[in-house]
Amino acid sequence: MIKALLARLKQGYRTMDFPAADLRLPPRGLGRPELSGRLEKAAAACPYSAITAGADPVLDLGKCVFCGACAAADPAGVSFTRDHRLCSSRREDLAVKGSVLKRADALGTELRGIFGRSFRLRQVSAGGCNACEADCNVLGTPAWDMGRFGIQFVASPRHADGILVTGPVTKNMELALRKTYDAVSSPKVVIACGACAIGGGPYAGHDECVGIPKDIPVDLYIPGCPPHPMTILDGLLRLLGRID
């Protein structure tokens, strides 16, 4: 017992302030992109057709896996900032124009009244590579301590206020995803976490993947491959109206 207490003393208090003004992705990290020029070279370099070139070029964060191929091909056209705040409420809001990204809105007053201070999510892993799951898990560690905001992942969909989906939704997981969604009582929230869940990610266009079914409405999109834990937590707190 005494050794555990001494260890606790040595390990120290590690919970970071969140949100904090100086939170940034690491120096080589790829966050919110900023665009200029027509981006023809950048568009040609993207393996996922995430960039539409032209007079008003657009980069769709929902398709982007943050590989940096566009910035390497067209360094003057695309630059990735270290800004981790990438989440949006609508699919179309993920389209970055210039340096503008429409960030996620809070849920309506009524839903915020229900979920605002206690928000339980069932995570559904549906065909990805397990990196998104790892960065969701990490939010439960003392460094992030998501629980302090009243947010928690739970085992049963019956105990959940919503689902957080990762992965491109394989054909083999389609039914399980639907059953899990149905098992959550209404009103409920759906979160698409990571490039795969939003638009297929690296697996976009594969016959083996079907995506989140159209009749399951998504309330929050969290781009990234995988999203940084900062990005996920920022999105969840915006959804709950805890960050403006």
């Binding site: 393996p47 996922y48 896996v65 590989c67 191929a69 892993s125 549906a126 065909g127 990805g128 590579c129 397990n130 990196a131 998104c132 790892a134 992965g167 491109p168 394989t170 083999n172 997981m173 399980a176 990610g201 690296p202 697996y203 594969h206 016959d207 083996e208 993947c209 491959c225 995988p226």
Partner: peptide
């Protein structure tokens, strides 16, 4: 349940996505 057809796509490479497939065979 996690079958997403990645080996089949690697077999058609190498192409612009191949490296990303290799990076995400198991994300950890």
């Amino acid at each position: 349940y996690q079958h997403r057809g990645v080996e089949r796509r690697l077999s058609a490479g190498p192409d612009a996505r191949s490296l990303h497939y290799a990076e995400t065979l198991a994300g950890d």
